[in-house]
Amino acid sequence: MTERIRTIIGKEWSEVFKNRMVLFTVLFMPLLFTALPLIMLGTMSGAVGADAGDMTDMPAQFARACVGLSSGECMQIYLLNEFMLLFMMMPLIIPITIAAYSVVGEKTTRSLEPLLATPITTEELLAGKGLAAVIPGVLATLLCFGLFVALLPLVGVGERIFAYITGPTWLLAVLVAGPLMAVAAVNFALIVSSRVNDPRVAEQLSTVIIVPLLAVLFGSLAGIIVLNVTNMLIGIAIMVVADVALIYVGARLFQREVILTRWK
C-alpha cells in the first residue's frame, strides 16, 4: 500500500468519524444486528425443546437439508440463517454510508480540485477511499461475529447449533461473502458518488446495492434459496466477478476532467 493510499484512508477516517451520525451507524448497527439473533436464540432455547416445533411450517427444501437434526434445532437453524444475512448486510451498510459521501462530499466542499491537483493517481485515490470505507465495516462485522460466537453458550445454545454457526456456511458468509459484498457496495457507491452532485442522492442511489441481498433474504424465507455451503460458494464466485467488474468500471468512470468541469 502506498503512502498516498494510507494518507487518503487516514484523511477519510479523520473526517468521517468526526461525524456523529456516521459513528453511530458504525457502532450501533452492528451491535443491534448482533443482539437480535442472541435474543432470539435465548428466547427459543428456553421455550423450545429438542423435538418441539413443527417441521411442516418450514420450506420443504430447507426441511430436506435438516437431516439428522431435531425439529427444534432445525427451526433454530432456519431462523439463524436469516440472521446470517444480517451479518452479511453489516459490512455493506457502514461502507455505503462512508463511500457514498466520499467523492460527492469533496465536490460540495470544493476540496476535490486541490486533491486532484496532487500527484495522486486515480487508482490510489479510489483504493484509499474504497479501503477507508470497507475496513471499518468488515472490522465491525468480524468483531461483532466474534462477540456473537463468544456469547452463544450464555444464551443456552446446544452443541449442534454452535457447531453450525461456527461451521463452513456461516464462516464463508461472514468471513468471505460479507467482505466481498462490502467491496462491491463500496465500488458501486464510489461510482454513484463520482457521478452525482448531491450527497443525499448519492446515499439513496448507493443503497440499491442492498437489493440483491434482500432478494436472497426473501428467497431464503420463502424456501427458494437454501443457505448452504454449495450456494454460498456460488454466491462468492458471483461476488468475485462482480467486484472485479465494479472496480474496473469504477476506475474507468472516474474521469477527473468530467468531475471537475461538470460540477457546478
Binding site: 498516498r4 484523511k11 479523520s14 468526526k18 469533496e106 470544493r110 476540496s111 480540485e113 486541490p114 496532487t118
Partner: peptide
C-alpha cells in the same frame, strides 16, 4: 484554486499534513 476547499472538520495542521504527504 479559485475556490480553495478545505477539510472543514479537520484542523489547519491536519489539512496541511494530508497534502504534504500526498505531495
Amino acid at each position: 484554486t479559485e475556490t480553495p476547499g478545505m477539510y472543514e472538520r479537520l484542523s489547519a495542521e491536519r489539512n496541511l499534513t494530508i497534502f504534504a504527504r500526498l505531495y
